[in-house]
């Protein structure tokens, strides 16, 4: 594998400074969310990944929002399909 980048390798591969917080990726309907687990039930949204620009306007996906993991219930996470 070759990296073709302007970032110097020493900086690229440097050990992370300070305690790094794990980030996990979850799918919510058609979008993907990178979240930072706070405790076994809750996580904070760090980043939204979606090709649909309108998803970035949806308040429920704003970075900083706290999600609660639940067993699958009647609350649908999927975006409107139509």
């Amino acid at each position: 594998m070759i990296l073709y980048t302007i970032v110097p390798p020493d900086q690229l591969w440097a050990a992370p400074v300070g305690p790094s917080s794990p980030v996990m990726e979850i799918a919510a309907g058609t979008v993907r969310l990178l979240v930072q687990p706070l405790d076994p039930r809750r996580a904070r949204i760090v980043r939204l990944i979606s090709p649909n620009p309108n998803d970035f306007l949806r308040p429920q996906f704003q970075p900083g929002r706290i999600l609660e993991f639940r067993v699958f219930s009647h609350v649908s996470l999927s975006s409107p399909q139509a």
Binding site: P59, S76, P80
Partner: peptide, 10 residues
């Protein structure tokens, strides 16, 4: 806030 995830507000 948690419960509203997935509810389309816009």
């Amino acid at each position: 806030a948690l419960e509203r995830v997935g509810q389309t507000q816009l």
